[in-house]
Design a protein around this nucleic acid. Structure first.
Length: 807
RNA sequence: GCCGCUGUGGCGGAAUAGGCAGACGCAAGGGACUUAAAAUCCCUCGCCCUCAAAAGCGUGCCGGUUCGAGUCCGGCCAGCGGCACCA
């Protein structure tokens, strides 16, 4: 069969018949979504193919199972790489992006997937980002967007903000200068308002357990207490602790270097040293700072605070093992019962006051388990939670402590000091302050003629035509916000746009959305576990609370595809020089064979190193199918009443294949589904070679085979389906149903063990009772020999599998 | 470092709820067909010892639970993903 030719032919016919578009039957809708692609490289890579081609097989399977499948495709087209590419080559991000999208559209259509192109979206187009801006305004209007100071990576030499990716080993990737932190006023989304629901909502999702666990840990709920310490100068600050039972052991307190009180509390004689420390700290990133391997450093501010629990005066430090973004940005140092505090205290000569012990009173410090309080006055003898409750209830009366639930989750920073993104639709007016751009004035267009070479300012800030505007409130001169939105904002709601992608009045019609959503199956990389997948859940919940959506979760069921690595086992990358492009394979073998190879060669969720060793073998497999088909298609259907052992075996294999393939396709176990299909083809080929055969059974079996193959090799199966004389598409057919009476055999093979060692096999009737099976085993020669007339101690019978005789 | 995951023949991988490890393939070797090659078909194929059989060993490493562990538990080692401005 000429694969390239039939692929072209059927793609054209499917498009003409609109076979790939959603048919409007919302009652049976199945929204199958793959994470859309980012058009940075000019070409589709194997990872895209693996995600889209194989999930398409799943979608086609669902369609044959009777669902009205909606499977859209689009492009996440804003982002840093296009801008960097522009800086390097001078090619405008818009031009390169649009060109890349065109290339990728062509490559995507060659997959032959049933993408509903009528719903395509591109996030960099004004008809899309208009609604991204709408989303921002809605969140702003509902108190979920706000501004505050936050640090960015700053290269003092390039005078520019760097993405984490652009910081290599603490230095600027362009010029090698050491990168420091710098505070800028930036926009945030208040995702923390939804921390609790984002956590509890995980329970009902059909997501990989590991992904749910990662989100859970990312949200990081912990129960503790906030305690107010008062500095001698009168300034108050709170610390968060999960171990308030150790409060009598506090020997110092620590503020994060970024804590606003650091400057205020520092005494004049310490100012120089503290300032130096804070500056040095700004060179380290959070991963380094949180590393327990890293040497603990800090600096004494010269000031003291009062421990509200015992009135003791303790020194105040700034130390970078405390993060300003977590808890209150301040901790109490209890060296006897915390490992980091212990190391710190040793280094800076702070006292180590033991206040917890175990039953045997033989602990080694630092002792971080719960235990019995000692050296804690009235609380001595209390244990764990009891101690914590007692201490809080006493301090509560003095207003110096309270129980507090804390989340590790932080608000979502969405400002980017970059060009290639959706402008933030806010005007800063000298009189009225921050003013939202009215909805009727959306979109705030991203200007084309912008200087985006880095020189210390947001690219848009240098564009006078963009920046200068009138205040929507007072009409006076005002300036636009020069920042753009994080591209994660664009991708946090795109699944809501697809079902109503051409709507010019609204981002989506709630009526349509509430019928099509939530997404029934979402497929994409595991690397999105904590960010994109969490942001999308947050946006869904926020829009629900505004009354637009009637569902709580965007993605009911989630599957992660694995990563296809280079042939050398490394992640494919230019620097490794190990990139394998799908195009040459698609050109040589056709997309069905390439797809089939990807289906068969990997465990879908695990991926693995690329090797094309097996691609010829799947091509041969299709040849075998075609040879079988050609022999069978001309048969008249004779001997239809022939039914002997061979026919029984064919039926057994056929029905087992239907059962297994059906199940395996449903759970993305494509490789085993193909293995079962290979077994079926082997069995049918063998049967076909018989002199006397039931032609009707054979022909029916081949018909089932084509249907089972169809989702995996759509063009190939469609061609054979029509050669069988059918007029309609095979994808309009019902999926085969297996006959459960034919998937069981009357006789089962048992593994016979003596003392758990294999001694032989025994074929026994399925109808035997455990007792009878035991008798058969005991009279089985190898068993008899070992028992030598003695009674066995025990006989274990596992129905249908194994007999273990314990001698 | 922290969170999460993975580790099975020469290779890709399979193994329901703790029950015959290696399904299905690739590669390799042998054979048939052929003037020859390709294609196709048949056989062998975890390691070790062996003419053969039997025995023994075997799912990253060490230990444990169990009649029985790739699967469960504890401790290591290695690799991968994420760590909030790559998306």
């Amino acid at each position: 069969m000429n694969m390239l030719e039939i692929e072209k032919k059927w793609q054209k016919i499917w498009a003409e018949e609109k076979l790939n578009e959603f048919d409007g039957n919302y009652d049976k809708k199945f929204y199958c979504l793959e994470m859309f692609s980012y058009p940075s490289g000019a070409k589709l890579h194997i990872g895209h193919w693996y995600n889209y081609g194989l999930t398409d097989s799943y979608a086609r399977y669902k369609r044959m199972k009777g669902f009205s499948v909606f499977q859209p495709m689009g492009f996440d087209a804003f982002g840093l790489p296009a801008e960097n590419y522009a800086i390097k080559t001078g090619i405008h991000p818009q031009d390169s992006t649009i060109k890349n999208i065109e290339t990728m559209e062509n490559q995507l259509s060659r997959i032959g997937a049933m993408f509903d192109w009528s719903a395509e979206i591109k996030t960099c187009m004004p008809d899309y980002y208009k609604w991204t801006q709408w989303l921002f305004l809605k969140l702003y209007e509902n108190g979920l967007a706000y501004r505050k100071e936050a640090p960015v990576n700053w290269c003092p030499s390039c005078n520019t903000v760097l993405a984490n990716e652009q910081v290599v080993g603490g230095t600027c990737e362009r010029c090698g200068t050491t990168v420091v932190k710098k505070d800028l006023t930036q926009w945030f989304f208040k995702i923390t308002d939804y921390a609790e629901e984002l956590l509890t909502g995980l329970d009902k999702l059909d997501w990989p357990e590991k992904t749910k666990l990662m989100q859970k840990n990312w949200i990081g709920k912990s129960f503790g207490a906030e305690v107010t310490f008062k500095a001698e100068s009168g300034e108050e600050f709170k610390v968060f602790t999960t171990r308030i039972d150790t409060i009598m052991g506090v020997s110092y307190v620590v503020l994060a270097p970024e804590h606003p009180l650091v400057k205020k509390l520092t005494t004049a004689d310490r100012a120089e040293e503290v300032e130096k420390y804070v500056y040095e700290t700004s060179k380290a990133n959070e991963i380094e700072r949180l590393s327990s391997d890293r040497e603990k450093t800090g600096v004494f501010l010269g000031a003291y605070a009062i421990n509200p629990a015992n009135g003791k005066k303790v020194p105040i430090f700034a130390a970078d093992y405390v993060l300003y973004s977590y808890g209150t940005g301040a901790v109490m140092g209890v060296p006897a019962h915390d490992e980091r505090d212990y190391l710190f205290a040793q280094k800076y000569g702070q006292p180590i006051n033991q206040v917890i012990t175990n039953k045997e009173n033989n602990v080694t410090l630092p002792y971080t388990e719960d235990g019995y309080l000692i050296n804690s006055g009235e609380f001595d003898g209390l244990f764990g939670d009891d101690a914590r409750k007692a201490i809080v209830s006493k301090l509560e009366k003095e207003n110096t402590a309270a129980f507090k639930v804390n989340y590790r989750l932080r608000d979502w920073l969405i400002s980017r000091q970059r060009y290639w993104g959706a402008p933030i639709p806010v005007v800063h007016c000298p009189k009225c302050g921050d003013v939202a751009v009215p909805y009727k004035d959306l979109p705030v267009m991203l200007p084309y003629d912008v200087e985006f070479k880095p020189d210390g300012k947001s690219p848009l800030a240098k564009h006078d035509g963009f920046m200068h505007t009138k205040c929507p409130k007072c009409g006076g001169d005002a300036l636009r916000d020069p920042d753009t939105l994080d591209t994660f904002v664009c991708s946090s709601w795109y699944y809501l746009r697809y079902p109503d992608s051409k709507n010019a009045e609204m981002p989506f019609d709630p009526e349509i959305i509430n019928k099509m959503l939530p997404v029934d199956k979402y497929v994409g990389g595991a690397e999105h576990a904590c960010m994109h997948l969490l942001y999308a859940r947050f946006i869904t919940k926020a829009l629900r609370d505004m009354g637009y959506l009637k569902f709580d979760e965007p993605f009911l069921s989630l599957t992660h595809q694995g990563v296809i690595l280079g042939p050398d086992g490394n992640r494919m990358s230019k620097s490794h020089g190990n990139i394998v492009a799908p195009d040459s394979y698609v050109n040589e073998y056709g997309s069905d064979i390439f797809r089939l190879y990807l289906l068969f060669g990997f465990n879908y969720t695990e991926g693995g190193p690329w090797s094309d060793d097996g691609i010829k073998s799947v091509a041969k497999f299709l040849d075998r199918v075609e040879r079988l088909f050609n022999k069978v298609v001309t048969l008249k259907g004779e001997n239809s009443d022939r039914y002997g052992a061979e026919e029984k075996e064919v039926e057994f294999i056929l029905n087992n294949a239907i059962k297994s393939v059906d199940h395996d396709m449903d759970v993305f176990s494509f490789n085993t589904a193909i293995a079962r299909l290979m077994e079926l083809v082997n069995a049918l080929t063998k049967y076909e070679a018989l002199e006397n055969k039931n032609e009707k059974l054979l022909k029916d079996s081949v018909t089932v085979l084509i249907k089972l193959l169809a989702p995996c090799v759509p063009h190939f199966a469609e061609e054979l389906w029509h050669e069988l004389g059918n007029q309609n598409s095979v994808f309009k057919e019902d999926y085969p149903v297996y006959d459960s009476t034919k998937t069981v055999k009357e006789e089962v093979e048992y593994a016979v063990q003596v003392n758990s060692k294999m001694k032989g096999k025994l074929v026994l009737s399925k109808s035997l009772t455990d007792k009878e099976i035991e008798e058969q085993a005991l009279s089985f020669a190898p068993v008899k020999e070992i028992l030598n007339g003695n009674k066995p101690k025990k006989v274990i019978v596992i129905k249908g599998r194994l007999i273990n005789v314990i001698a």
